[in-house]
Amino acid sequence: MSQKTNIALSVNGEQVQASVPARLNLVDFLRDHLGLTGSHVGCEQGACGACTLSVDGVMVRGCLMLAVQADGANIITVEAFGESVTGEQLQQSFVEHNALQCGFCTPGMLASGIDYIESGGSTDRTHIRKHISGNYCRCTGYQSIVDAIASVVEGRNSLAVETKQTPGAEESGTSNKRAGE
């Protein structure tokens, strides 16, 4: 009988408690125990990137981390990517650019794409390709995925330029934010 450990963690904003065997990896825990089947299991050796998800704000391979190691962690999976502004924009951009076909790589691609955009990545296609080099896609040839990520970065850059050039826009942006708060 394998040793079980009690863990408590936050998954997509919900508190979760479970008793897990040591050998259970994080992505299997999310899929098989919590029913969050958005993160995909491909190679189980860290090469394909389909299980990439966010642990305490950084992207990791869900197949190369044990569920017991996620005790106390804050996990965000593809099921909740749309709740952040970047995630929502990127998902929309994936649709607009046909950046997926079968969809198997998409959860991991979105994770890497969000990471790239939020870490201040540029529209340089070589940089984008390097950043998503850890995610395999066997349908699209990557072109449309790079387009989708570049388009979100471009949209943000042009918004920043607009805001800088028109003081009025900046003011109204600020007041909107205040109103939102």
Binding site: G46, V60, L64, G134
Partner: peptide
């Protein structure tokens, strides 16, 4: 050295 998600761990 590997990919961003690997370098994070």
């Amino acid at each position: 050295i590997a990919h961003a998600a690997i370098r994070n761990r």
